[in-house]
Simulated scan of single mutants.
Amino acid sequence: MSESLSGATLAFQRAMPMTRLLDCGMDFADAQSLFRRTSAGEAWDLVAEALAQAQLRRAAEAAAAGCKVTAAEAQGAALADLLFAQMAFNHDNPRKRALYGQLVAATRQLCEWSEGRMARVELPFAQSHLVGWLVRPQAVQARGTVLVFGGQSGWGVAYLPIARALARRGLATLLAEGPGQGETRLNQGIFVDVDMQAAYSRFIDFIASDSTLGAPGIWGNSVGGLWAARTAAVDARIRACCVNGGLAAPVLLPFRTFVEQAGAMLGTDDEAVISENFRRMSFHPARDRIACPLLVLHGGADPLVKPQDLQPFLDAADSADATLRVWEDGEHTLYNHASERTAWVADWFAQRLDVESMR
């Protein structure tokens, strides 16, 4: 890397602060160790990978002893470690691919231990497949299902803690890896130059095809909030939409990480091409109307998203049930209010999807 080691470490710690690590399910001791060891000069990806391996061993030992709850908890902590290990690389180099492969294998193992409550999903799209992970509640019949996804770097099982919160409220969750994300990009070769609404509607097709999953909702985080809003505007099956920290009209921001991640999602480093694709995907309230209940979340301390960036979503609401919730000291996607944010939004979805599914 062109930066000094200390510069790289500072960049990683800014992009992946302690609040974000914990929000995505990293064990607190692992998060502390990751910051301490990388501050002392160790490589971010190597430390996070080593922490993951320790958690995987703990999970396997617990499973062998018949301690299924402990095994699942340790496996979940390992997933978070691996998630942040691969996040050290913006471009799809062999190291990122290898780390993501470990993440996928560990997630498959968690599915095997879940007794049918967690399963891998692959859906045909654009001569390839979209990938996701379905997490079911304890009951056979879900009160509804929320399609949850991130933006440029938080994908799939990054939102497993959210899925668990939704499950406690009787809701299923489909953790989507949309175009430009996770395996859908790394292994299936689908980038963000496709029809994004059509892609996310394929996940809605899956939810609608299973009567045990109930009515669908959609929850997009970061740049994913844009795709959630645009999909809700064209897919009448969606019964509730949450935009968390979204940009209605994304542009290339003056951060190297943002630019590199945007390029990787599109499969090019040509900034003019990236900017043009952002314009293509932008949300326009005169065209994109949202009929279902809408919830928009914003953090007042978010360095990436300003109030004017999310106002178009609210301007597009045709439902009287449209809410803006602001945490004045909130970080991007409200990492630092993760527990309250997740509980509040999970309750919001439970109230709306359950009513709809029972009609």
Rank of each mutant, 00 (worst) to 15 (best):
A167Q: 05
A74Q: 11
E115W: 04
Q181G: 06
A71T: 07
P161A: 07
V234S: 14
L266I: 02
D329V: 01
T184N: 03
F125Q: 00
Q127D: 13
T212D: 09
G267Q: 06
E260A: 12
Q261D: 10
V135M: 04
R95Q: 13
D347R: 08
W327R: 00
V140R: 14
E340K: 02
E271V: 10
L10D: 14
A72H: 06
D288H: 11
G41Y: 09
D210H: 15
V305T: 11
R230C: 09
R136A: 02
A59T: 02
P17H: 12
F278Q: 09
Q127G: 12
K306L: 08
A346S: 13
T9F: 05
L175I: 08
A158E: 03
G41K: 15
A50E: 14
Q197R: 14
F278A: 08
E49Q: 13
R117M: 12
A31Y: 07
E331C: 00
G170L: 03
L160D: 01
Q152W: 07
A249F: 12
I162N: 07
V47G: 07
A167W: 00
A64R: 06
G144V: 02
F203H: 01
Q55P: 11
Q188R: 08
P250A: 10
F12K: 10
R120I: 01
V234G: 06
E115P: 07
G220T: 03
S33Y: 12
A71K: 06
A8F: 13
A50T: 13
L123N: 03
E177A: 04
P307T: 08
D205N: 11
R239A: 15
D309H: 15
D23E: 13
V69A: 11
T212S: 12
A272C: 01
L174D: 03
L247N: 14
S282G: 15
E276P: 01
R256F: 10
G224D: 02
G224T: 14
A343W: 00
R168M: 05
S114H: 05
K306F: 10
C24V: 04
A31W: 06
A317G: 03
D81L: 00
A346T: 11
R14C: 12
W344P: 00
V148E: 02
L252C: 11
E3S: 13
T333K: 00
A236G: 06
A240S: 08
A126M: 08
Q13K: 14
G245A: 08
G76L: 09
G300E: 06
G150I: 07
W219F: 12
I207N: 02
A229I: 06
R58C: 06
A215Y: 07
F349E: 03
R352H: 01
F278M: 04
Q311S: 10
V273A: 10
A249V: 15
L253P: 09
N336F: 05
W327I: 00
E122N: 04
A286G: 12
R168G: 11
A236F: 11
N336W: 02
R359Q: 01
A139I: 03
T231R: 09
R108E: 08
D27E: 15
A286D: 14
L324A: 00
N277I: 08
R36F: 12
